[in-house]
């Protein structure tokens, strides 16, 4: 071979091949079951909410990147944000509110902080919190899940404080209950979780400790743990949002603290606060302490002898 053809690059000369955008698209695929369930249970309304949210999220990303003079890469992260936001919204919400939420999540929460990897808060959840603060009524109007067939009628969610849940466990599992469009079907979310955990895209520690903490605490305060785990947005949040790399800790230990913290705050809000639900705020609160966790919870360097340990 001619010497001129020699290529020289720094080592290592092997790469795992799992790129950021591949990871993002696997998450998109893992989001398809709950997305499908949302459309199945809430019909056209869910479909239009989802399309609006995703389209506006991706468009916003495109426009903001152009404005910042950065290349726009279709890495899938904006699709995830759009999908996740849609799945946390009630079926009856006005579409312009959805669009506003999507723009807010990408432009303000993600890009204004510096783009993927630099945001402190989960963009989808922040947008949901923003919409709840701005449009309280629309964000808490729930309807029955009647799919494409009949007109939906207003009803309460399983975790409602005024009406006790009497529907049994099966609907909680399959998802034909009231709630945000993507959170109702535990079945669909568990399929997504299996995909993500088996491909090692997400760390099982966060959903496991989060859900576990909620179950144990609800037992302690004498509530039905099945209802508390399946009846609200817990699974959706624990699997897809609390595990967001950028806004959760980097170490195993840190992630356990994060999951337990989310669980405790969720239960405090549900049991003591005025709201029936607490998943969104608990994850956002833990997002805020994540830099702190990462700062203090570190791995133990190999060969660190005990004497030196007090220094860390």
């Amino acid at each position: 071979m001619a010497e001129g053809n020699l290529q020289v690059s720094p080592g290592p000369h092997l790469w795992h091949g799992l790129s950021v955008s591949k990871i993002m698209y696997i998450v998109v695929i893992a989001l398809l079951p709950p997305t499908g369930a949302a459309i199945y249970f809430f019909g056209y309304r869910a479909l239009t909410v989802i399309i609006t949210s995703v389209v506006f999220a991706v468009l916003t990303e495109f426009v903001v990147k152009k404005m910042r003079g950065k290349p726009f890469v279709m890495d899938g992260s904006a699709i995830i944000t759009g999908l996740l936001l849609a799945l946390t919204l009630p079926p009856t919400i006005n579409l312009w509110m959805v669009a506003l939420g999507a723009i807010f999540s990408i432009a303000i929460i993600k890009e204004a902080f510096g783009g993927l990897g630099h945001n402190i808060f989960n963009p989808a959840l922040s947008a949901r919190a923003f919409l709840t603060a701005s449009f309280g009524v629309e964000m808490t109007t729930w309807t029955t899940s009647t799919g494409f067939t009949a007109d939906a009628i207003a009803t309460a969610t399983p975790l409602s404080k005024s009406v006790a849940w009497q529907g049994g466990y099966l609907p909680l599992f399959w998802g034909n209950i009231a709630g945000s469009i993507g959170e109702t079907s535990a079945f669909a979310i568990i399929i997504g979780a299996i995909i993500l955990i088996s491909l090692r895209i997400i760390d099982w520690r966060i959903p496991a400790t989060y859900v576990g903490t909620v179950a144990i605490l609800s037992l302690i305060i004498g509530k039905d743990p099945v209802l508390y785990v399946l009846g609200g947005g817990l699974l959706l949040g624990a699997v897809y949002m609390a595990t967001d790399y950028v806004t959760s800790p980097i170490t195993h230990k840190g992630r356990i603290i994060f999951g337990v913290g989310c669980g405790i705050i969720t239960m405090v809000i549900r049991a003591l606060g005025g709201l029936p639900e607490g998943v969104c705020y608990s994850i956002l609160l833990m997002n805020a302490v994540t830099p702190l966790i990462d700062r203090y919870v570190k791995t133990r360097p190999f060969g660190l002898v005990k004497v030196a340990k007090s220094k860390t």
Partner: peptide, 17 residues
């Protein structure tokens, strides 16, 4: 940009970040 995924932390044989 780093996405804080933690893979490097997981694989490091020397327990570093």
């Amino acid at each position: 940009d780093c996405i804080n995924c933690g893979r490097c932390v997981e694989v490091c044989p020397m327990g570093l970040l």
